[in-house]
Computed example of a mutant assay.
Amino acid sequence: MRPRVWVVERTFAWINKYRRCVRAYESRPDHHEAVIRIAMIGLMTRSLARI
Rank of each mutant, 00 (worst) to 15 (best):
T45E: 11
A34L: 13
C21H: 02
W6K: 15
W14V: 04
A39T: 00
A13I: 00
P3F: 05
R23L: 11
V22C: 09
W6H: 14
R28M: 04
S47E: 12
I36D: 03
S27W: 15
I38Y: 15
S47Q: 13
I41F: 12
K17Y: 10
R4W: 14
W6P: 07
R50N: 06
W14P: 03
C21K: 03
V22P: 01
R28V: 01
W14A: 10
I51C: 07
V7A: 13
H31V: 12
E26G: 02
P29M: 02
P29N: 04
W14N: 09
L43E: 07
R28S: 07
M44T: 05
C21V: 07
E33H: 06
A34N: 11
I51V: 12
A34T: 13
I36A: 02
A39N: 00
R19N: 06
E9G: 02
W14L: 08
I36M: 07
I51N: 09
V22K: 11
A13S: 07
W6G: 09
R37L: 09
M40P: 01
V8G: 03
W14E: 07
R20D: 01
A49E: 08
R46Y: 15
A24E: 09
R37Q: 11
L48F: 09
R2P: 08
I41Y: 11
L48H: 07
T11H: 02
E9R: 06
A49G: 06
H32K: 10
A49L: 05
F12T: 05
E9Y: 01
V5I: 14
V22E: 07
A39L: 00
R20S: 02
Y18M: 07
F12Q: 11
M1E: 04
V8Y: 04
Y18R: 06
C21Q: 04
W14D: 10
I41P: 06
A34K: 12
R28C: 02
C21A: 09
V22Q: 11
M1F: 04
C21R: 02
E26F: 00
K17R: 13
R4E: 12
W6I: 14
I15L: 08
R10D: 14
G42M: 05
H31I: 07
A13H: 03
E9P: 02
R20N: 00
L48Q: 08
P29A: 05
I36Y: 00
R23F: 09
A24G: 14
E33D: 09
I36Q: 03
R2C: 06
I41T: 10
F12S: 06
N16K: 15
